[in-house]
Amino acid sequence: MKRIVFSLLIGISIMYVGCENTATEVDIEDPNTNECTPQFPEMDVTYDNFVKGVMDQYCISCHFTGNSPGPGDFTNYNGVKAASGFFAARVISDNADMPQGNAPLSQSIRDSLNIWIGNCSPRN
């Protein structure tokens, strides 16, 4: 028994001494860096001046904080921006299925949402 315990202690000691942190330090990219180039720089469609009103009128009845029937929280900028990647298929396209159970959004609203996304989803 002493021999097993001694062997385990020797083994653990060798592993402990043999381990060292050899990972090199890497620069982590700043998540706030905006790598997006606006596609429609002359168009002033922002969350504050347009998108929030659309979300309030058509979306937040299902997409809100907590136990909502729809995924995502569209009651604030961060929630809408996080889901904006799905807007092209679910909201903007001619085959859009949102808002669910209602008529599709008008073409002008869909075009403006597309401009907002194309301009890197500006807040204001």
Rank of each mutant, 00 (worst) to 15 (best):
E35C: 07
N32R: 12
E42V: 08
Y77V: 05
G70S: 06
P99S: 05
D94Q: 11
S84Y: 08
S84T: 13
T37R: 04
P71A: 04
M98I: 03
F40P: 05
N34W: 02
T37W: 00
T65R: 04
F87M: 12
T65D: 06
Y47F: 15
D48P: 00
N32L: 13
G53I: 03
Q100R: 09
L105A: 04
Q57F: 10
M98D: 06
S106K: 09
S84V: 11
A83R: 03
L105N: 01
T75P: 00
N67L: 09
I60M: 03
G53Q: 08
D97A: 11
M98N: 07
Y77P: 07
F74P: 00
T65F: 12
P104Y: 02
F40W: 02
F64P: 03
N34M: 08
P71S: 07
N49I: 07
F40S: 13
P69Y: 10
D30A: 08
T33D: 14
S61T: 14
V54T: 04
S61W: 12
S84I: 08
S68L: 03
Q57N: 11
K81Y: 11
L105W: 00
F86V: 12
M98S: 05
N95S: 15
N102H: 10
E35R: 12
G101E: 11
Y58E: 08
D44N: 14
F64C: 00
F40Y: 08
Q39I: 08
M98A: 06
Q107P: 00
A103K: 12
E35M: 11
C62H: 08
Q100C: 01
I92K: 02
N95W: 03
S61Y: 12
N49W: 01
N78S: 14
C59Q: 02
T75A: 01
G101I: 09
V51F: 02
A89T: 10
K52E: 09
P41S: 11
K52D: 07
G70K: 03
E29V: 14
N49G: 06
M98Y: 13
F87Q: 01
F40I: 07
F86N: 15
Q100V: 09
P31D: 07
N78E: 15
D97N: 13
S68V: 03
K81T: 13
G85P: 10
V91R: 00
V80Y: 01
F64N: 00
N95L: 11
Q100L: 09
A88L: 13
N32H: 13
L105C: 04
S61L: 06
G79S: 08
A89S: 13
N78A: 15
Y77K: 03
A88K: 12
Q107G: 09
A88E: 15
I92G: 02
A103H: 04
S108Y: 02
Q39T: 13
T65K: 05
C59M: 04
G70P: 06
A89G: 12
